[in-house]
Design a protein around this nucleic acid. Sequence first.
DNA 1: TATTATATGTTCTTTTTTTCACAACATTGG
DNA 2: CCAATGTTGTGAAAAAAAGAACATATAATA
Lengths: 222, 222
Amino acid sequence: MKTNKNCVIRLSRYKNALYRLKSLGFVKIFSDNLADAVGVTATQVRKDFSQFGISGTRKGGYQIDDLINNLNRLLGKDEIHKVVVAGIGNIGTALLNYKGFEKESIKIIAGFDINTVKQNAAGEIPVFPIAEMENFIRQNQIKIGVIAVPDFAAQQIADTMIQAGVKGILNFAPMRLHGPENVVINNVNLVLELENTIYFANAVIKTGVVGQLTASAQPDGV
Amino acid sequence: MKTNKNCVIRLSRYKNALYRLKSLGFVKIFSDNLADAVGVTATQVRKDFSQFGISGTRKGGYQIDDLINNLNRLLGKDEIHKVVVAGIGNIGTALLNYKGFEKESIKIIAGFDINTVKQNAAGEIPVFPIAEMENFIRQNQIKIGVIAVPDFAAQQIADTMIQAGVKGILNFAPMRLHGPENVVINNVNLVLELENTIYFANAVIKTGVVGQLTASAQPDGV
DNA sequence: TATTATATGTTCTTTTTTTCACAACATTGG
DNA sequence: CCAATGTTGTGAAAAAAAGAACATATAATA
């Protein structure tokens, strides 16, 4: 199958929206409702589902529970994913505190920081010295790491993670990280997001309307 | 001119990379170097620049300072942009503490929180009760707001901001916000980013390589 | 059970984005 | 001053993504 990256990202959004709709009491849904909720066209929704072999019934639309199950399966949520976080500053702390991961089968099992004040081996999610990260990753066979350290330290942390066997990195440091072909690095740059927001807002202020933006995020491999 | 959204986002990335390269001592740069630094092709870099009327010299490449100036101008960095942040939790605090905005002409001038413990009118960046936000935005003619409150409160905060005159919102709450056509809402969903990373990492683990992902982020207007 | 209204699944088009290829031009060295 | 080298800028081609349209299936209804 041709794996379309934007498509996968949309799948995540669908799932997200479906959880919300479900919590509102909906049981079934039509492509155009879901399209509205996510901000794409109904055709796109159907096409995405079709591409991944998800089908509904020709007049009844889609069962939300079925959809969620299918999406979870596709997105790999039928197994628990263990994640470690390097850098327990504000963003790292936010992630450690966030309660919304469990239903996604994501479990942050440890944090690492160089600052002894942040360390706390007895916490609900323990925080260890960064020197212990490599061993920890190896021993627990962690495949996903989050980098929330200052930029100057980021590449080194990434290298360590990769060396220890991590295959996916979510990077919040404001720089592009490099790694081998078989590791996915997803960069989220908050400054950049704010800048873009400002740019488009300015465009709106000057021209009236920008229309529907559907711009690029940045899972960039390597 | 046809404003290509992805293109604008790449411009931000170029600028980012250029600052880094400059700090490393580089003075001029070629399209392929920059392409490497950002993770696109050299042609793409030249075409983007061309589209926005930025030019280099045929054998000397581009002067980094010129580029940065041009990009800043294009991205609206020749004026200071005042920003307010609603919700001084972990992410809100991270933004308030971040020192990298100044060189981008972005200035976070106030935070707002419902929790009196977070409030501190005398701080370097003052934090006021959320009830004062609307007036503050009006009086200071703020055009950009950041939402870092829990999901259930997000839409209401957005409505208030928009009512007060905000034209661009950067939303960290894990849900799609709605607003009128002439307001840009840029959603950054950290859970979703982590999920996507996991998905693509799994793909790597199973198939060996995903190749260069260039997937979508989501400035979605409305 | 037959009929009708409605939503899907898919093909075909259109649009957008990216890449290729190369002419034009600047710099460097003889 | 000329040739050799190397990089830009851009039009044309290719690829990818999104959208429109419609045939087909199915739920509801009588």
